[in-house]
Amino acid sequence: MSTLRLVPGTPDAVLSALAAVLDGSGTPFAPLPDDPAAAARARQAIAPDEPLEEDCAVVLTTSGSTGEPKGVLLSREALIASATATHDRLGGAGQWLLPMKPYFVGGLQILTRSILAGTTPVLAGDDFVTAAAAMTGARRYTAMVPTQLSRYLDTATDALRSFDAIVLGGAPMGPQLKARAADAGVTAIPAYGMTETGSGCVYAGLPLAGTELALDDGRILIKGPTLFSGYRLQPALTKEVLQDGWFRTQDRGRFTDGRLEVIGRLDDVVISGGVNVTLPAVQARLVQHPGVRDAAVLGVPDPEWGSRVVAFVVGEVEPAELRDFVAEALPRTWAPREVVQLAELPMLASGKVDRQRLLDGVR
């Protein structure tokens, strides 16, 4: 078995190690987060001193937004398949701007696409406008999370318009953000995927070439060449989620007019006072309020209700008004029992909401 090499999670270090494994000259590697605490958690998931499983080029750690991080084994073939299918969907290879951390799959795959396209990626750094202006490719792409797009729409609309496509991943693209991007003339494409699928594998509800989708009692199943090889040193978990070539995700979905619509996670339904509450539906309703810029909704263990629905809201709106607003479109029993107003939602380096930090603040 191969040994696993740890590399710093900087763009230059990851780009060099990635180019070597893609051309067959390098050894499997794992990029470490730049935050010391996150790096320590990643080391536990990666277990670099243990023998490495076969069919692995890169080991990435999941962000741990809903639990302990896991080491995800990605093969050279999966990385290439994802990058190739993405370029095919977008209309051809091009130059990419990197506004994301390369030790997460979204950032790593920007570098993979750049290597395969023979182009030099541009680093966004702290000045997105200047970085976008430095792009020289005939076709220009970038990828980011919805929170980034929302902020850039406030400050860098012209720069956003300069891209042929902006791929959005890591979180759902809400209707308000979709409308803002369209009104600004920005080509933003919502993507669904995760580390286990080699980054986004469904664009605007339609699977990339080679990817198959199915539903099992609402659970989203994915098959295709971009899938991961397994979880690092967790054969039982790997066997549980990879069955007959299908990856059994933890997400619920449905098909609408032939397109996949992601409804939420399987654990996003909580029982509060004997009533089943679908948390993503409450969150989607909250962000429709003109005074709400962003929101997250979680179920918090409660001795009286079993779970109480708590809304974390960015915006200055009276809690009673928000509860009434939710009740206008959804059952009143779904309205949040508690509203926590924040200046902004805490985010992980991956761009996902730090759900654990929110929970820790209200328990």
Rank of each mutant, 00 (worst) to 15 (best):
E240N: 12
E240H: 13
E240P: 00
V241G: 11
V241Q: 08
V241M: 10
V241P: 09
L242A: 02
L242P: 12
Q243H: 14
Q243A: 09
D244P: 04
D244A: 13
G245S: 08
G245F: 01
G245R: 01
G245Q: 10
F247A: 10
F247T: 00
R248G: 09
R248K: 13
T249C: 08
Q250C: 05
Q250F: 03
D251G: 11
R252E: 13
R252D: 04
G253A: 08
F255L: 12
T256I: 10
D257H: 14
D257K: 02
G258S: 09
G258P: 02
R259K: 14
R259T: 13
R259E: 05
L260A: 03
L260G: 02
L260W: 01
E261I: 14
I263P: 00
I263R: 12
I263A: 11
I263V: 14
G264L: 14
L266A: 15
L266Q: 11
D267V: 12
D267Q: 13
D268V: 04
D268I: 03
V269M: 15
V270W: 04
V270M: 10
S272F: 06
S272M: 08
S272T: 15
G273F: 05
G273A: 09
G274H: 06
V275S: 09
V275M: 11
V275K: 06
N276D: 15
N276V: 04
V277I: 12
T278D: 07
L279E: 07
A281P: 00
A281Y: 12
A281N: 07
Q283F: 01
Q283G: 15
L286S: 06
Q288R: 15
Q288A: 15
Q288N: 12
H289S: 02
P290W: 02
G291Y: 02
G291S: 10
G291L: 08
V292L: 11
V292H: 00
R293D: 12
R293E: 10
R293H: 09
A296V: 12
L298I: 15
G299I: 05
G299F: 05
V300H: 01
P301V: 03
P301G: 01
P301Y: 01
P303I: 09
E304A: 09
W305A: 06
W305I: 01
W305L: 15
G306Q: 04
S307F: 09
S307G: 00
V309Y: 07
V310G: 06
V310L: 02
V310D: 04
A311K: 05
V313D: 12
V314H: 03
G315P: 04
E316D: 14
E318D: 15
E318I: 00
E318W: 03
E318Y: 00
A320I: 06
A320Q: 14
A320M: 06
E321V: 15
E321I: 00
L322Y: 02
L322G: 03
L322M: 09
R323I: 11
